[in-house]
Amino acid sequence: MAQSPSRRTVLKCGTALAAAGLLPISIPVRPAFAAEEALPVEEIADGIFAFAGVDALMTKANRGEICNVGFIIGEEAVAVVDSGGSVAEGRALIAAIRAVTDKPIRYLINTHMHPDHCFGNAAFADTGAVIVGHRNLPRALVSRGEFYLSSYRESMGEALMREIRIVPPTKLVEGEEMLDLGGRTIRLKAWKPAHTDNDLTAFDEKTGVLFTGDLCFLRHLPTLDGSLTGWIEQLDVLKAVRANRAIPGHGPIPADWPGALEPEQRYFEALTRDIRAAIAAGVPLADAVKTAAQSERGNWHLFDEYNARNATAAFAELEWE
């Protein structure tokens, strides 16, 4: 696990395990599987829990647990934010929820299409949760779902992949929408293309905690799969969200707001500056991506894994300016 669970979390997990052993019937997991060990979540604010994923690629060893996931408990119901990178992680997240509340899971919010955020969707099939996503999310999953299922087979292994299904959202968000959890409203916002073309954020009005999805990366190099200029333009709108803390898509939780946006903004500035200069000088794409944004290399985890890819996408986008 990414970090040592807090004392409170440990106590909760202990309770859950005891309950699993003594009263398996009360644990809402499918009978085919042993009760999953609860994901070590932290209580970030009153009724808001989150788990910090590791800065790594998705593998069999980490069960795809590389992004931050969480949940919000209202008076009547629970909303989950992202299901994780495997059905196993999704089940562990459900176990973590059941360790602290028996209220029904009303919504599963998918912040965007990436496998680390929604490969766990199938774990929620029996919970009755309505899956909520950006208006563009179903289309993105149609275009990429099958590729994701095959391309992750090697790193994640057959045992984890066998259970994974591409489960699209049924409640779609365009613009802004509110989710009611009883005495607690969650403001959802569908963004214009940025990290992807289907980014959704969830803001808890009660505590001022913002789940940014992958619109905010800390420590883990941001990955670009939507529009670099769109992302940069919307940083100002994002900064204006009156949150007091954030759960970024990747990186330490909770994070200061809007300070959490500064590192990625600095990276995007370096990337756009270098790529624009290369395009202007006529440097071919293959050469430009080798040097772009190298000044940022020491500031991020997974820089070598993702920077050339970001630079490639940035080049193809900025060439049209």
Partner: peptide
């Protein structure tokens, strides 16, 4: 093949359709 979540698919589908057929020669 690329690692991570890179897919051989469109990144910004609406934009791709909105400017369909636009050409640039350098």
């Amino acid at each position: 093949a690329s690692g991570g979540c890179s897919a051989p698919a469109m990144k910004n589908q609406d934009e791709a359709m909105a400017s369909l057929g636009k050409m640039k020669l350098r």
